[in-house]
Amino acid sequence: MAYSEKVIDHYENPRNVGAMDKDAKEVGTGMVGAPACGDVMKLQIKVGDDGVIEDAKFKTYGCGSAIASSSLLTEWVKGKSLDEVQAIKNTDIAEELELPPVKVHCSVLAEDAIKAAIADYQSKQQQ
C-alpha cells in the first residue's frame, strides 16, 4: 500500500517520542488499543497551571499510520488548552495524513488516546 508523504515523514521522523512520569500530578496518560489487534498507543500530556498543555509525548506499537497519527497529535496538542484539544476529531487527523479508509481506525485510536490522557489528568486533579 502506498503511504502519503505526510505519513512517511512522521514515520521516519516521529515527533515527541518518549515518556513522562505517569505518577506526576501534572501528567495525564492515555493508553489505548491492544497488542492482539496490532496497535497500542500511549499518549502523555503535561498540563501547566493555566490549563495549557506544555508538553506531549507518545509511544506507539502499530503500523505506520498509527505511528504517524500519534506523532501528529502530539504536535497539535502542545500549547493548546484542554478544551481546544477535546475538539480535535479523528477525521481531522485522517484528513491531514490522507489516511485511506482501511487506516482510519488509526486516527480513531489517536483521538481515544488523547481523550483518555485528558481524563486521567482530570481525575488526578480531583484527588
Partner: peptide, 24 residues
C-alpha cells in the same frame, strides 16, 4: 522498539497478558 510502549512494559517486567487492554 524505541517507539513501542510494549517494549517499555516488557523492560519494566510487566506481563502483557496480565494487562486489561481496551480492545477496539
Amino acid at each position: 522498539r524505541e517507539l513501542s510502549p510494549l517494549w517499555d512494559m516488557y523492560k519494566e517486567g510487566i506481563d502483557l497478558d496480565s494487562v486489561q487492554w481496551a480492545a477496539h
